[in-house]
Design a protein around this nucleic acid. Structure first.
Length: 263
DNA sequence: TCAAATGTTTGATC
DNA sequence: GGATCAAACATTTG
């Protein structure tokens, strides 16, 4: 569910409620999600003041006066403000003004407390919305991988997931199997422009709700209605009418128009 | 019953 | 040592 636009939307819906507030009490229920230890983590967080909530790629960093709460939503993670707890609630934060929940069915996500951000988390590439063209192009030339899997590699740039990789390659008219290092500067410019444009448009529409994604208030996004290729196998390309094709690349479903996106 | 799902990490192989 | 790729993780849904 959560790629950069969804994470950004969640953050925007949560931050105004929680920044500046004190966490009176925190409880953790999943050893998978909270690997630092459930009771130790509760103790470390109780009484902390939330100073800021920010994002890098898909990572959420909630800065506390005592450290940082790292949240990664994985595939099915949700941060919810003043919502009903479920059997998938993996953490509860009681603030002075309400309750923040972390829900996660598949438990691929993480909620961890650190005194300071570990180096390993710092190794993600530049944020997909902040990276400049020259850096993007320079990095692109260093990889002989296919462009689609490269866009999903968070140490290349961070924030792009499976939906937006397919959508931005369609917008740029680039075949998902194109070899990154062999892409011309002109075509790289198209990819770079599409990257920014698609992510910005998705944020404006509050993300894509394709299965059960919701923001911090429990509201769905609407960008899924504007997808051109993702999840549209067999449907006509909006640009030329050719049937959208689905292949598997790097173990991920990949959707593209075989006519508009030439190899 | 089988396939697929928005993501990352780990281990094998080149 | 670096790059690349498949498997694994846990659960739901069509």
């Amino acid at each position: 569910m959560p790629e950069l636009p969804e994470v950004e939307t969640v953050l925007r819906s949560i931050a105004p409620q929680v920044v500046g507030r004190t966490i009176h009490r925190a409880e953790f229920y999943s050893k998978r999600v909270t690997r630092g230890g459930l009771t130790q983590t509760s103790r470390a967080i109780a009484g902390a003041v939330i100073l800021a909530a920010r994002r890098r790629g898909k990572q959420i960093l909630i800065e506390l006066d005592s450290g940082v709460l790292y949240v990664h939503l994985g595939m099915t993670g949700k941060l919810l403000w003043n919502q009903q707890a479920t059997k998938y609630t993996r953490a509860i934060f009681q603030l002075e003004n309400g309750t923040l929940l972390y829900d996660d069915t598949r438990q691929f996500g993480r909620v961890e407390f650190f005194k300071k951000v570990p180096d390993a988390l710092d190794r993600v590439g530049p944020d997909a919305l902040s990276v400049g063209f020259e850096e993007f192009y320079g990095r692109l030339r260093q990889h002989r991988t296919k462009i689609k899997p490269l866009l999903l590699n968070q140490s290349f740039i961070s924030g792009v997931g499976n939906i937006y990789a397919d959508e931005l390659l369609f917008a740029a008219r680039i075949h998902p199997r194109a070899v990154a290092s062999r892409i011309s500067r002109t075509r790289a410019e198209k990819i770079y422009e599409s990257l920014g444009a698609v992510l910005q448009a998705a944020i404006e529409h509050r993300g894509s709700s394709i299965s059960d994604y919701v923001d911090g208030s429990g509201e769905k996004g609407s960008f899924q209605t504007l997808h051109n290729v993702y999840g549209r196998e067999g449907e006509p390309c909006p640009r030329c009418g050719t049937a959208i094709r689905r292949i598997v690349l790097g173990q991920r479903g990949t959707h593209y128009c075989p006519h508009c996106q030439r190899a």
